[in-house]
Design a protein around this nucleic acid. Structure first.
Length: 201
DNA sequence: TACCGT
DNA sequence: AACGGT
């Protein structure tokens, strides 16, 4: 269904950039070049449209993680690429959106939390375990606990009340936190490879 | 597009 | 008054 995709594209772009409550159904209809009636034929109400549009982008994220998993064999490189992807992904989302859906769209909020706590955390856990097996990450670390900690770090980076956007930029925080975290889990062998990877670009 | 209810 | 919904 072509129009449904178009509506979802437009809705997702406007919601993430401007905020869910700021964007009206009239705005989306106009930008998508359809009537409001067409939107309501596809989606029961605004809450469903919000839900479906976020679900769609999280399905894309999951597909991206799965592609990385099969294409990247080096756990250190894999770890860095995941961090980069999450940063670029969150950077496009107006932080306002998170508080909005938490308050006004509980189903979408639950979807987001499930994605974070299951898909994202599991992906990080797998990479840490793979690095342990290959001797790049210290064998004594607990991958489950550290994956949760890493997830909290990544979320915290984008929380404007923790890192004021006027004082820090996302890229600097991301690099600092990522560097600190990975040094805590690298073996000597892993550290060598990490430096080699960092110096080749 | 005009309109109604919140 | 503005916006979701018809």
């Amino acid at each position: 269904m072509e129009t449904r995709d178009k509506i979802l594209d437009v809705a997702n772009e406007q919601f993430t950039q401007l905020g869910v409550r700021y964007v009206t159904m009239d705005d989306i209809a106009r930008a998508a070049g359809v009537s409001k009636k067409t939107i309501y034929q596809e989606f029961d109400d605004k809450g469903r449209l919000v839900y479906e549009s976020f679900k769609r982008s999280m399905d894309n994220d999951q597909a991206f993680f799965e592609a990385l998993h099969s294409e990247v064999s080096c756990p250190i490189e894999h770890f860095v690429l995941i961090s980069k992807y999450i940063r670029s992904r969150f950077a496009k989302i107006n932080p306002l959106v998170f508080s909005e859906i938490q308050r006004y769209y509980p189903e979408s909020w639950k979807l987001f939390q499930d994605f974070r706590n299951n898909c994202a955390v599991r992906t990080i856990t797998e990479v840490i375990n793979s690095g342990k097996e290959k001797g790049y990450f210290r064998s004594e670390i607990n991958a489950d606990i550290l994956a949760l900690i890493r997830m909290d770090q990544i979320s915290g980076i984008f929380d404007p009340s923790r890192f004021s956007p006027s004082e820090y930029n996302i890229l600097d925080i991301q690099m600092t936190v990522m560097d600190h975290f990975i040094h805590g889990i690298l073996t000597d062998k892993g550290r060598e490879l990490f430096y080699k990877i960092n110096n080749q670009d």
